[in-house]
Computed example of a mutant assay.
Amino acid sequence: MDSKCVISQIEATLDSAARGTMETVKDILNFEIVGIDVQTYLLAFLAIVGGFAGKRVAVAGLKRLGKTAERTDMAYDDILIAAANRPIEWACIIGGIWLSLVILPMPREPVDIEQFVNSMMRGGSTILLLWFGLRLVDGLTAHWEVKAEKTESRLDDQILPIIRSSSKVFIVVVGVILFLQNLGYSVASLVAGVGIGGAALAFAAKDTLSNLFGSIVIFLDRPFHIGDWIEMGDVEGVIEEVGLRTTRLRTFANSQITIPNALFTTSTINNWSRMQKRRIKMSVGLTYDTTPEQMALAVEAIREVIRNDEGFHQDFFIVNFDNMGPHSLDIFIYAFSITTNWLDFLAVKQRFLLNIMRAMAEVGVGFAFPTQTLHIDSLPGEPESLTSQRPN
């Protein structure tokens, strides 16, 4: 037997074995278990494997994104990635399971299993979104708490737990409503009932809610801090404590005033502690026997006092002969001290007034005070001899 015949026989044997193997594989794949062929089971199994493989890919991608986000100055991208990490992992697994269930034929009678599975998957997606929202709230509030610890006010430390709890309750309520809706339940009546109950609760607690929103406005706008000297209407004093409902202020008479936070949203607040400089506005009255030359010297002497005092801003001040009053010649003084501290300001002002007194003494003029000259034409019971001697 020559070699060509041997090769032909081998090829025929291999071809026959391959056809037999293919037929066997086809028979195995077409073999049905509970009415479903093995090929469909394998595809469903591969879908589940793909879900877990997608989880691995998602984890690796999120790690790379996390490393990239760490190199940025903004913290919110790190918070977003950290919040989405676990939900995305489970979304890959649940997606693989859902795809495997879609591949498998599901009966519709007597129970529509396919619709039930689709509803459960939509509900699962809602739960994942709910989980992501809760993790995001935790991350954001934790970041804000670190910032709040660096501030002087305790209001932000008190309000952050309320923001966290309120946000979580809101997310859970919305998530439950969406979950029930995806399961096929009618939530219109539930939403209407919640709306009516919320409106009634808001009306009953409108003052408390207005004060709470007032505290939020204080937290966001920061019109003052603990220890600031403020004036609002006829109330003036130093802020001692800012709470969720009220703010406590210590007056200069050492009494404590409690102010509802809602008033801060509708009233004008004058924060004296935020002055960049403190004003001195006053007039110095000289006697009427002051000559014009002495007045000019007096004005220049006061200007020189301000120039030589390091406690005053030198960029702007006014000293001018301003008025001829009923009992004095008035010099108007308008200047600003560098310090805004009250005690230091009083020391600067005292030094300034003493220097003015010394300067006026050197010029040779005197300070005026309210006086009146009384001209008597006649006195009751005056003797005729005195009347005849009065000059005409």
Rank of each mutant, 00 (worst) to 15 (best):
L140Y: 06
L140G: 05
T141L: 13
T141F: 10
A142E: 13
H143P: 06
H143R: 12
W144E: 15
E145I: 05
E145F: 09
E145Y: 11
V146T: 15
V146Y: 11
K147G: 12
K150W: 02
K150G: 04
K150P: 01
T151E: 15
E152T: 14
E152V: 11
E152Y: 09
S153A: 08
R154Q: 13
L155S: 05
L155C: 02
L155T: 03
D156C: 04
I159V: 08
I159D: 01
L160H: 04
P161W: 07
P161V: 00
I162F: 11
I162V: 14
I162H: 11
I163S: 03
I163E: 04
R164W: 09
R164D: 11
S165V: 03
S165Q: 11
S166E: 11
K168V: 01
V169A: 11
V169L: 13
V169D: 10
F170N: 10
F170M: 12
I171E: 10
I171P: 04
V172Q: 00
V173Q: 07
V173D: 03
V173M: 13
V173H: 00
V174M: 13
G175C: 00
G175A: 04
I177Y: 02
L178A: 13
F179M: 11
L180N: 01
Q181S: 15
Q181A: 14
N182V: 02
N182I: 01
N182E: 07
L183S: 00
L183I: 03
G184C: 01
Y185L: 12
S186F: 02
V187N: 06
V187S: 05
